[in-house]
């Protein structure tokens, strides 16, 4: 695939943090040094960190405090979320999704993936929250493949009863998974994000050397999020659910219902942040 142009850029701090998280020698101070110079990133990071989901007993007011209480990995995940919230356009070209709905869906998938893992007693694979949050990264850039026919994808999705990814491939020769993989690479994001972006609609196709649990969990969380109406877009239920995921993860409808009810308040709290 050729390079994707006109792509919103993630704050440079997030790419730098992405490198730090991969480095075994990076210290809390290194993290702080990268985040602190970006005041808007810092502000959003602190708002997210203080939401009920992250379970802090007292309010954090500085990056340093957040790192001390939550650790480097969690702070990276929150910083990536805060950075991502800034690059979502007010309406996603091609899909006509409003930024508030896209953000709500992204947060819902991140939270549901983690909580489903906990409920299913699966050890949470590295950076699951971030992989869940950024799974639809490709949707940010699909618009650039549509050129002058911005309405074409939406029209086709409305008419057809086929799955979302199938319609994208038919019309564009690619889908938001493939595009997401490319963006994640351009943005220097961790491998967990790259693989999840690419395979979250086809979890059985994951390369053998990759931990498929991460992709399975995001695939499941994505479907559950759409079922509960977190983030409206045309054709959101017109998606294939890979039933082999149920076998691999071992869940049933009761687990999904329990997690759905248990996370509603936390998803809503974070989903309503950054509304412009």
């Amino acid at each position: 695939m050729s390079r994707i142009d006109n792509l919103p850029t993630l704050p440079t701090a997030v790419a730098q943090l992405s490198k730090l998280i991969a480095s075994p020698t990076a210290s809390a101070k290194d993290f702080e040094k990268v985040i602190k110079p970006d005041p808007s990133l810092t502000a959003n990071l602190l708002r997210l960190a203080n939401s009920a989901y992250f379970g802090l007993r007292r309010e954090v007011t500085s990056v340093k405090q957040a790192i001390t209480l939550l650790g480097n990995k969690r702070v990276f995940e929150i910083a990536a979320s805060a950075g991502f919230s800034r690059v979502i356009p007010s309406v996603l070209p091609g899909y006509n999704i409003k930024s508030a709905d896209f953000w709500l869906h992204s947060i819902a998938v991140a939270v549901l993936a983690e909580r489903l893992a906990t409920e299913l007693r699966i050890q949470v694979p590295g950076l699951l929250f971030t992989a869940g949050l950024l799974h639809d990264l490709g949707k940010l850039a699909i618009g650039s493949f549509l050129a002058d026919e911005q309405g074409a994808l939406l029209e086709k999705l409305k008419q057809q009863d086929a799955s979302f990814s199938m319609t994208e491939r038919e019309l564009l020769g690619t889908d938001h998974g493939e595009v997401g993989e490319e963006i994640a690479k351009q943005w220097d994001l961790p491998e967990a994000v790259i693989w999840t972006s690419k395979w979250h609609h086809q979890p059985t196709k994951v390369d053998e050397n990759i931990d498929s649990t991460l992709v399975d969990l995001v695939h499941l969380a994505d479907s559950v999020a759409h079922m509960f109406g977190y983030g409206a877009d045309v054709g959101e239920l017109a998606r294939s659910i890979d039933t082999s995921v149920a076998t691999r993860l071992g869940f049933d409808v009761h687990t999904i219902e329990f997690v759905g009810g248990d996370t509603e308040e936390q998803i809503r709290e974070m989903g309503e942040m950054f509304k412009s």
Binding site: S223, H226, M227, I241, T243, I256, E257
Partner: peptide, 16 residues
């Protein structure tokens, strides 16, 4: 009470 496109009953929350 909708359901996913090709759900075979795993996610029958809509029906329930």
């Amino acid at each position: 009470g909708g359901q996913l496109y090709d759900d075979k009953g795993t996610f029958n929350i809509g029906k329930r």
